[in-house]
Amino acid sequence: MTAMSSAGHSRERHALLLMLSVLAVLAILHIQQGARPIPATVMLDAVLSPDRDAFDHFVILSLRLPRASACIVGGAAFGAAGFLLQVAMRNRLAEPHVLGLNAGASLAVVLVTTYQPVVLPDILMPFAASLGAAGLFGLVLALSALGSGRFDPVRMVFFGIALSALASALVSAILILNEDTLEQLRFWLVGDAAGGGAAAVWSILPAVALGLVAGCLLMPQLATFSLGESISVALGASVHRTRIAALVVTALLCGSAVSLVGPIGFVGLMAPALWPRLHQRPSLGAFLLVAGSGAAILLAADILALGLLAPTELPTGALTGLAGAPVFIWLVARRLT
């Protein structure tokens, strides 16, 4: 038993190391991409001896680094949110985009931006978005659980999709009637890491860090879920409370990520799918692994978005959609046969 688990730990460590090095390579590739050709030596210069008046240094330090960080932070949040959701709901198909969290968060952001009931400081936008995500997801949960008393995975996916459609109908209604907000939000709405800049990354960092730490703390309790609900109850885990806590954390992570990079879907579906048998042994290591993979996926998608049709930038969210929807199809096909 101990031998087995230590073998598992060392495998996990290897995977974590592998993932971190992939992340580093991707980050360097990402920073090299851009509309302005900048030689590698200048990049080193920019980091080692930044010159305030050199535009190349500015591009590296204030445009590309923040954009790469936005991808890393946002991707990690999306990946972690997806994994938390999947473990807590015991549902491989659970993902913020599929279950309506993204749609709820974007509805909240569009509402706040258009009608400005209160002028929100940037640092509070992630929380408004999280509130929207939690609201819509709460509705999905209520509809799929009430009456039967338990969360049926497939029903949840259906309700998630139906309510997402509803929220996006409301979003497009608002934007059709308001041309200028549409112009302001059109890129963000389909997922765009360029939007915020360094300030925005800093302003959501506390929320994401809070979410990741909370996720780490919850992981050991959630791990017992994989044994089945009755066993985890017998082991003394408070299934209900842990689950609620996990969902609140998910909403926080997802809302922060949406307010930074827009409603990008499927990262949380693809990240765990990269690692076979991850769901059988959910653990702290697995959680970090998935968060890192989410960051790597979003970085890779953003590299493609920048480079595929350069100089035209594609919306990052569309690329994760093109890559992630087949993963969803594959998961469904495997699940139901």
Partner: peptide
């Protein structure tokens, strides 16, 4: 057209 901020100069 919409261009990257890197084109500012």
């Amino acid at each position: 057209i919409v261009v990257s901020t890197e084109r500012l100069p």
